[in-house]
Amino acid sequence: MSTILLIEDDQSIADMISIYLSEENYKVRFAPDGKQGKQLFETVHPDVIILDVMLPDMNGIELCREFRTLSSVPIMMISAKSEVSERVKALVIGADDYLCKPFSMRELAARTGALLRRSTMNKASSEPVRAEARTIRVDTEKRCVYGRNGIVETTYSEFEMMKHFWLHPGKVFSREELLNKIRGIDSFVTERSVDVHITNLRKKIEEDPKDPKHIKTVWGVGYKFEP
Rank of each mutant, 00 (worst) to 15 (best):
V194P: 03
D186I: 08
E153H: 02
E191K: 13
I49H: 06
G222I: 14
L167C: 01
E62H: 04
R29P: 00
R118W: 01
V84I: 14
V28T: 13
R148D: 11
I151H: 06
N180D: 14
D57R: 08
I19W: 12
K203F: 02
V92R: 15
P56Q: 10
A80Q: 06
V92I: 14
N122K: 14
M77P: 09
R65H: 11
M54W: 12
W219N: 12
I19V: 15
E132D: 04
V44W: 04
M161G: 05
I198H: 02
G222K: 07
C64K: 10
L51F: 06
E86A: 10
A110Q: 11
H164M: 07
E127H: 01
K163N: 09
L115P: 00
P74W: 10
D52R: 11
I4C: 03
V88C: 00
K27C: 13
P212C: 09
V194D: 04
S18A: 15
E24R: 15
K181C: 07
L6G: 08
L21S: 10
S85V: 12
S187N: 05
R117H: 02
T135S: 02
I19G: 06
V44Q: 07
G222C: 09
Y156V: 14
T190M: 00
E62I: 11
K171V: 14
D186P: 01
G94P: 03
K89S: 06
K171M: 07
E207L: 09
K203I: 08
T199C: 02
L179M: 13
D47W: 08
G60T: 14
E226I: 15
D186W: 02
E206N: 05
M162A: 00
I93D: 06
L21K: 11
R29E: 15
Q36D: 13
R111P: 00
R68L: 01
S119K: 06
E191P: 02
R148S: 09
V172R: 03
I182W: 02
L91H: 04
K123R: 09
M77C: 10
Y146A: 00
D211M: 09
L115W: 01
E86I: 13
L51T: 11
T43E: 14
C64E: 12
S193D: 09
I215G: 05
L178V: 11
R134Q: 11
P169L: 05
A110D: 08
M162C: 01
F188A: 12
K163I: 03
A131P: 00
R87Q: 13
E176Y: 09
L167D: 12
Y26Q: 11
S22N: 15
A131Q: 08
D57H: 06
S22F: 07
F188S: 14
I185Y: 06
D15M: 12
M58R: 11
F159H: 00
V172A: 12
Y26M: 12
D47K: 12
T190A: 00
I7P: 05
T120R: 03
R148M: 08
E177W: 05
I13E: 14
L5Q: 10
P209D: 08
V84H: 04
P74N: 11
G147A: 01
